[in-house]
């Protein structure tokens, strides 16, 4: 029997979000979400951040606006999202239908010694996203609910915000290329074609 109160495991969540990903474009926030997305399989349509904390959701917005026919999924952590709360307001106003933000919430700053974040103190990021005006905003605790977010991300009926409660576990690093030029160039070449190499 599985314990119905058990927290989700972050890498299971990410594997499910990226199942049959097709043309999905992914921005991964720095730290563990980067390693999780990479563990699910390095892919030129991933842009995993190694720094610039707070960038992930707004990069997702710029990408979603530039590529309205593609679906964009931002996978980031609670600490990273807390650093750019204003982005929730900006994204709510712009209403990109093709953007989903999935926050893996372990209630910890995982890379720096597992200190508690504000979500451990009761801050409700999904409530904040909803209050900002992102109408589809959920707290996710079960595998079935993760699948529902995966499906929404692929349908493009966003913007969608999901706060996915996960276990605060430290897992082995799985690293993508670290060079920003490589990550940028391969992503642009994949999305825009070889033309991207010439301008």
């Amino acid at each position: 029997m599985t314990n119905p109160n058990a927290l989700l495991h972050r890498r299971d969540v990410v594997v499910e979000l990226l199942r049959e990903r097709g043309e999905l474009l992914v921005i991964a926030g720095l730290g563990a979400p980067n390693w999780d997305v990479s563990a699910a399989g390095d892919n030129p349509n991933n842009f995993p951040l190694w720094g610039a904390m707070g960038a992930a959701s707004m990069m997702g917005l710029g990408l979603a606006l530039a590529q309205p026919k593609r679906k964009v999924l931002v996978i980031t952590g609670d600490g990273e999202m807390l650093m750019s709360l204003g982005a929730l307001a900006t994204i709510a106003v712009e209403k990109p239908p093709n953007l989903t933000i999935a926050v893996l919430d372990n209630e910890r700053f995982g890379e720096t010694g597992m200190q508690k974040t504000h979500t451990a103190g009761g801050v409700d990021l999904a409530g904040m996203a909803l209050a900002a005006g992102i109408r589809t905003s959920r707290i996710v605790r079960t595998a079935e609910e993760v699948t529902a977010i995966r499906d929404l991300a692929h349908q493009g009926k966003g913007p969608v915000f999901a706060l996915i409660k996960i276990s605060p576990e430290a897992l082995p690093f799985v690293m993508p290329p670290a060079d920003g030029v490589i990550l940028t160039t391969r992503f642009r070449q994949s999305v825009l074609g070889d033309e991207a190499l010439y301008n």
């Binding site: 992930a56 990069m59 710029g62 979603a64 606006l65 750019s84």
Partner: peptide, 15 residues
């Protein structure tokens, strides 16, 4: 700084 990140995303998408 939101704009710096947004325009980075725009560039990834060709804008």
């Amino acid at each position: 700084e939101e704009g710096v990140a947004m325009l980075a995303g725009a560039w990834l998408g060709g804008q």
